[in-house]
Nucleic acid binder design. Structure first.
Length: 578
RNA sequence: GCGGCUGUGGUCUAGCGGUUAUGACAUGAGCUUCCCAAGCUCGUAACCCGGGUUCGAUUCCCGGCAGCCGCACCA
């Protein structure tokens, strides 16, 4: 049994997660989170909010999970998010149609399905497996389609990423942030992709949770004001060049930017924050690296993209996070389709002064004289240059193919000096995009430990404090009224203080410790006869299995200190000798 | 989607054309002043779904679903 199996089995058995719809046989690509899993997921999401909403000051929004057709026309998901497929008529093998003609056509993506099929016929392309005839080419779109309202007039699609919700709300977000760059918006929520063949449990789902941030920045300046805070962090980078050499390099964030390995400070800054976040939720540092997308796998809109990848036992290196510079691709696409202006006015450091020729046709005279033609004549006059204006005699302009003469005194002009304070530009977007389900699985796998204690295997989930689905368990040594009564008081006190607290009287104390080890409960509080006689309780540490005794009154303070890591367990109370 | 293998209580598993379908662990109730999966008593709980063959199918056959492996796919 490998680690993947051990972890998924534990997750199923103890209530973290399991395949959905089991009652009816199931459907691949969907998972349920159970009581512990839902809690753990929430804690991961809250930790993420701590990093991006609280510490970066980004705004969290919540957009619909169903999008209308125009959004995905603009984003490119409608055309680009589908793959052209073809099927062998003999052996029923399915192929990516464009892959079969790669050696003939340089950019097969540009062809329509019919054109690809034509290429098959012109070049005698048959099934690579059995040589059979290939079917016509059809599109398989990875978006789930639905209808909005009755009838089929108004198509809707389940969103394949949360990002678009931020892009299409750009004008309101810009206003919310008082019209100035940089600013960021985030969204945590479900996204949907109708994968052809989902495998690997929770790693490839048809419905999954994303946490995405879209950081809108000034395209002319991709430095980051807080870069100093992260520049000395050492990370394992697997750059494009490194991948060609098969070599992962350790270097500081600052060095990576200086050497041009990471494109710019802002991208590097979020790569570094991603690194910190993943460790803060319990991803093992020594099984984490950042891999740069190779030029050919980079999405068409991205300028640079780095994936956080983790090493998993059965699955190898798996992508958890993508940090991409999406440039102005998305805003420009939405601008083109919606006709809305998705720009920002950016002030120059210094206003620019420049001379400008202002031409004022005398409309009072031109209007009555030329009637309907007047407007066109005025426009023609305005486009004259200084030389033409300064000439002698009547001015001749071409309007609707005929030449019209206008007296020179009907056009006044002057050079004025104007001050330009800034310009409208389309922001660039830096996108850190997190797959929450994959992170959750990784945290479970990287926290999983097995050890032998007195010839018995002990399974421990070494989750970090505050990431656990249960903070503390209250355990009466025995299920007797004289012990359960004070235990219940302690339970209530801990719950009132806001801790996720479990209460368990069933089975022997050792068995209950093991149960809690398996779900990662960091501390167990045991109530025994000394609690009655001396007013003390025992706190037991998950990782060391050591115990200390503390006064009942001090319990709340001690537990809170232990859980936020300001209190060392060794100093938390009177050690109990094993 | 294709091919191969697999599907029995919560978990791991035995087994068979006719049984009251094993066993272990887990779990529930109880007993035991019991700090690391202790012991004892008594419980709860399963043949993936649908068709076919048969007097009778959990067992054989076909289809579906799911899992694993390989291929393809993974913006």
């Amino acid at each position: 049994m490998d680690r993947y199996e051990q972890v998924t089995e534990l997750a199923r058995r103890r209530g973290f997660m399991w395949p959905a719809f089991e009652l009816y046989g199931g459907a691949a690509g969907f998972y349920d989170y159970g009581p512990l899993g839902a809690q753990l997921k929430r804690r991961i999401e809250d930790a993420w909010r701590g990093f991006f909403v609280i510490r970066e000051g980004f705004a969290e929004i919540e957009a619909p999970t169903i999008g209308i057709e125009d959004i995905f026309k603009a984003s490119g998901h409608l055309s680009g998010f589908s793959d052209p497929l073809t099927e062998c008529k003999e052996c029923k093998e399915i192929y990516r149609a464009d892959h079969l003609i790669k050696h003939i056509i340089e950019v097969p993506d540009a062809l329509s399905d019919e054109e690809i099929y034509q290429v098959f016929q012109d070049n005698d392309i048959f099934c690579p497996e059995c040589g059979g005839d290939l079917s016509t080419v059809y599109e398989f779109n990875l978006m789930f389609k639905t209808a909005i309202g009755p009838g089929n007039k108004h198509a809707g699609y389940l969103r394949p990423e949360t990002a678009q919700g931020m892009f299409i709300n750009y004008p309101r977000l810009l206003r919310y942030f008082r019209g100035a760059l940089p600013f960021g918006a985030v969204q945590i929520g479900k996204s949907y992709r109708n994968e052809i063949s989902p495998r690997q449990g929770v790693i490839r789902l048809r419905e999954f949770t994303q946490a995405e941030a879209e950081v809108f920045i000034d395209p002319r300046d991709k430095t980051h004001p807080r870069f100093d805070e992260v520049k000395d962090i050492v990370m394992r980078l697997y750059s494009q060049a490194g991948q060609e050499r098969g070599e992962v390099e350790e270097m500081t964030v600052g060095e990576a930017v200086e050497k041009g390995i990471i494109a710019h400070q802002t991208l590097a800054y979020y790569v570094a924050r991603t690194y910190q976040f993943l460790q803060a939720v319990g991803v093992a540092r020594d099984r984490l690296r950042f891999r740069q997308h190779k030029a050919d796998e980079m999405a068409h809109y991205a300028a640079d993209c780095w994936d956080a990848e983790v090493l998993l036992d059965r699955l190898g290196w798996i992508e958890l996070v993508g940090v991409a510079d999406r440039t102005d691709y998305d805003l420009k696409s939405h601008m083109a389709l919606s006709q809305a202006r998705l720009t920002v006015f950016v002030n120059y450091d210094q206003p620019v002064r420049r001379e400008k020729l202002v031409i004022k046709p005398d409309m009072k005279s031109l209007g009555p004289r030329f009637k309907g033609q007047a407007k066109a004549i005025a426009e023609a006059l305005k486009s004259l240059d200084m030389k033409e204006l300064k000439g002698e005699g009547p001015i001749a302009v071409q309007v609707d193919g005929e030449t019209v003469e206008v007296e020179r005194e009907l056009v006044s002009f002057e050079m004025v000096e104007e001050e330009i304070r800034g310009e409208e530009l389309v922001p660039h977007v830096i996108e850190p995009s997190f797959g929450i389900d994959r992170i959750l699985y990784t945290v479970l796998e990287h926290s999983y430990y097995e050890e032998m204690v007195e010839e018995e295997p002990r399974i421990v989930l070494r989750l970090l404090p505050r990431m656990t689905p249960v903070d503390v368990a209250v355990l009466p040594l025995m299920d007797r009224p004289e012990l359960t009564a004070p235990a219940r008081e302690i339970l209530e006190a801990l719950r009132s203080a806001g801790y996720l607290t479990d209460y368990d009287t069933s089975g022997s104390i050792g068995r209950r410790y093991r149960r809690n080890d398996e779900i990662g409960t960091p501390y167990c509080v045991t109530v025994d006869y000394e609690t009655i006689e001396q007013g003390t309780v025992t706190i037991r540490d998950r990782d060391s299995m050591r115990q200390v005794k503390v006064k009942k009154e001090d319990l709340l303070g001690t537990v809170s200190g232990l859980l936020c890591c300001t209190q060392r367990f060794e100093d938390a109370g009177v050690a109990v000798s094993p």
